[in-house]
């Protein structure tokens, strides 16, 4: 992971541009807010590598993300852009920014709960803590299915307002 400390001014600028690309499946979020952008490196003038990490290994949005980043950076004058996928360290829902969480809830998707450091896959799947309905705010919600419209979401229903909603499940 490239920290901002060792990035050049140009890399920071390109990083902001790449980070401003909206997520293809959740367009309310930017890639920066989703936390999937791992680094931008200028290898030579006009030649840039962007490191991207998938939310899920099989996430089909990665290809769209890659081509969107390539397009944005090319439009900015970078002739040669290559987007590489990195798997390690694995992405976690804790990488979604506070602003990203706020936007998810506003969009009608219950944001993932913070996991802290226990996101190693060794503990039981946390499904019992209260998840708030993004429509009415009630914490009285029930799980309908562990997998919803995409692998990263679970389908729940609010027992107060009866509306079904997606929950971005913790990973």
């Amino acid at each position: 992971m490239t920290g901002t400390a060792d990035m050049t001014v140009l890399e920071e600028e390109l990083s902001r541009l790449a980070g401003s690309v909206p997520d293809p499946e959740l367009p309310v979020l930017t890639l920066e807010e989703l936390g999937v952008l791992r680094g931008v490196r200028v290898l030579a003038p006009g030649r840039v590598t962007v490191e991207l990490t998938p939310t899920y290994t099989g996430c089909p949005a990665v290809e769209a993300m890659s081509s969107d980043i390539e397009r944005v950076l090319r439009d900015h004058g970078v002739a040669d852009v290559s987007v590489v996928t990195v798997l390690s360290p694995a992405w976690s829902t804790d990488d979604i920014s506070a602003e990203g969480r706020r936007k998810l809830a506003e969009f009608g998707i219950a944001p993932p709960r913070h996991q802290g450091t226990s996101a190693t896959g060794s503990g039981p799947v946390p499904v019992t803590l209260a998840i708030r309905c993004p429509h009415c705010g009630s914490t009285e919600t029930e799980l309908l299915s562990r997998f919803s419209s995409t692998a990263c979401k679970a389908l729940r229903r609010c027992t107060a307002c009866r509306e079904p909603f997606d929950h971005f499940k913790e990973l």
């Binding site: 290994t57 390690s88 694995a90 992405w91 190693t120 896959g121 799947v125 990973l171």
Partner: peptide
């Protein structure tokens, strides 16, 4: 993921570390 099938930083290790979190949901299901 813990031991590293192809050493630290190897793709297999990285994949295992990522996939184990997804598979936790498969197992729960």
């Amino acid at each position: 993921a813990a031991a590293g099938g192809d050493g630290e930083g190897g793709t297999l290790t990285g994949l295992a570390g990522k996939a184990v979190k997804e598979v936790a949901y498969h197992q729960d299901h």
